[in-house]
Nucleic acid binder design. Structure first.
Lengths: 132, 132
DNA sequence: GCCGTTCTTGACTGATCGGTCATCCATGAA
DNA sequence: TTCATGGATGACCGATCAGTCAAGAACGGC
């Protein structure tokens, strides 16, 4: 009994995740999320409680981080929220464990790739090394 | 001729950098910067033009990134601004070059350290490995 | 039909945002 | 002593922020 939800939670959370990864957590406004998800503020708050709640939902969906987007969300979580948010920190820890021992280098590589910074010497470890 | 500056620009920029690294760029308000630097808004804007200008000044001071704080500022720059800000991207690139070929792993390691995420298995690669 | 429950809608709030500006003040030159 | 210059001050601005809520709508049960 009661009115059913008119949206697919997974689709909404994915749209939100796209926002968060695009410009970061703090720079994403609830109006942005409203626009991206198609939901109205009330529904968004009814379903997720807060901007942070929606972010946590998105983060929970990359417990097994696969693909760039998941890695980007992990970056945002680790840099913007984890240092001052225990719950986010725990979620990040879990995702990193799933990434294996080289989590930090995967994240570092993706960080610079996302920033479009060319600094990772692609196939040699020393600038000195010459390749034909 | 004219009134001399009453503040040391280096000190002000360092104080600002501390803010930015503490909570990130977007989450740092100009009021925070006013509080941390001791300057008034007008002076801050007179000297640096904008919040972004102050950030750029801070970033320029870690062209040779030494220490955690410089690395943290680099992280913030790379994640929050570089993807959509050409000038920041260039500055990050320069600093990364100074970091050498393992810039991405240094940043990745520091990212998780700062987030207080224990995921870098310190002296074994597999969780299976037992330690006495 | 009617009711209880849950979801939807969007107007609304007070707080805070980055940035501006008129006014005042300290200085060195004349 | 007067003046031009540029820094200091803090009140002020419109825009935007995250979050709330009263009203209406869609359902299942009866």
């Amino acid at each position: 009994m009661a009115r059913p939800r008119s949206f697919d939670e997974a689709v909404v959370v994915d749209a939100a995740a796209r926002c968060f990864t695009e410009v970061g957590y703090a720079a994403t406004s609830v109006d942005d999320l409203v626009g991206a998800t198609g939901l109205h503020r009330g529904s968004l708050y009814g379903a997720f409680g807060s901007k942070r709640g929606l972010f946590l939902a998105a983060l929970a969906r990359c417990a097994e981080p696969t693909g760039e987007r998941a890695l980007d969300l992990l970056l945002v979580a680790a840099l913007e929220l984890a240092p001052h948010d225990e719950e986010v920190r725990t979620a990040v820890e879990r995702s990193c464990a799933a990434l294996g021992g080289d989590a930090s280098s995967s994240l570092g590589r993706r960080l610079l790739e996302r920033a479009r910074v060319r600094s990772d010497v692609p196939d040699s470890h020393h600038p000195r090394t010459r390749r034909s």
